[in-house]
Design a protein around this nucleic acid. Structure first.
Lengths: 168, 168
DNA sequence: CTCCAGGGTGTAATATTATAACAAACGTCC
DNA sequence: GGACGTTTGTTATAATATTACACCCTGGAG
């Protein structure tokens, strides 16, 4: 498990705890989605997904564009286009609290609500599905006569690793 | 209950269902917060809060700046400063999913999590506190060894009014 | 095979959201 | 009144996101 000391652009300390996603699995899901829609899983889409999966942390769109730039400069708009596809495919989510994007481990079921736990120290994101949260949301919606479509549940806080080895 | 046909800038249809907030109550809370901190509840802060309370809907910062501009142009940065104060005071919240701001009805307790229900048709926001959601969040956090600090729970969907009189 | 239609790509421009920096005005405590 | 801390007004700039358009593939119809 490589410990890479590069700086975290979002203000936390370092790139500790970043756990890379299973790139093959997530790419497989993207490919399956593309096939099911009859649209191509193009190189740009692959590159963005691969980068996010390898990073294991949320990245800003412009940051992705920069990392993907080599001889040819990748423009942000190209990244946004790829992200749009990847979000539809369910392989990438947008963190509303930070306007950043990250690759997602698992298929989400429909009876549960996914909670994104964002560590304000190291920037890592963990996902967890909660039945209780889902029921709570349905409850308040029902009470208000509100028809729920898309929940956004993000929890800012401190992850286990940062909590146990504080201040570094 | 006035039905004002002006256009909703966020893509929904019209300004139906907007329920203005009790401006006096919320202003009282802001004033109390200011007093408790020994800082002034200045005119700019009042104006931003009054506008948001009257609107009863989320507004973008630049939209606020525009509405408050008369002879003198109000710059966005001034609005952001006021919003910062108002958020600290708990009178205004930021909708992460839309990067917009709205005045909030009630004091929030600490054992509950507040859910913002955002209607994708008319743009109105309702708040509701949920004990179940709070417990669900604590649950997933505990399981992951995550120390929760600040939850963001937004539910996009269709409000009761839009649901009952669809398509207009 | 050729042509056409639908997407995807590359590029430039622009819109939208948010913050930084700084001098001048204000208020309050002494 | 003077000193300090905050707020204000203003300009500039950073960061995030979308629009527009010409070009290029690729795959199917004819």
């Amino acid at each position: 498990m490589a410990r890479d000391p590069k700086q975290n652009p979002r203000g936390g300390h370092a790139d500790l705890h970043a756990h890379a996603i299973d790139a093959d699995a997530v790419q497989g899901r993207a490919r399956a989605y593309a096939a099911s829609k009859g649209i191509p899983f193009t190189q740009m889409r692959q590159r963005v997904l691969a980068l996010l999966a390898a990073s294991g942390k949320p990245m800003a769109a412009y940051e992705i564009a920069e990392k993907l730039s080599d001889a040819r400069r990748v423009q942000a708009v190209q990244v946004y286009r790829a992200l749009e596809f990847l979000q539809e495919a369910g392989c990438v989510h947008r963190l509303a609290s930070q306007s950043s994007y990250f690759a997602c481990d698992h298929q989400h079921g429909s009876g549960e609500t996914v909670v994104f736990m964002v560590c304000s120290q190291c920037g890592a994101v963990q996902e967890a599905a909660s039945n209780l949260v889902a029921r709570g949301l349905l409850g308040v919606a029902k009470t208000s006569g509100f028809k729920p479509l898309h929940p956004i549940v993000e929890l800012e806080g401190e992850c286990a690793s940062c909590n146990s080895q504080p201040a570094r």
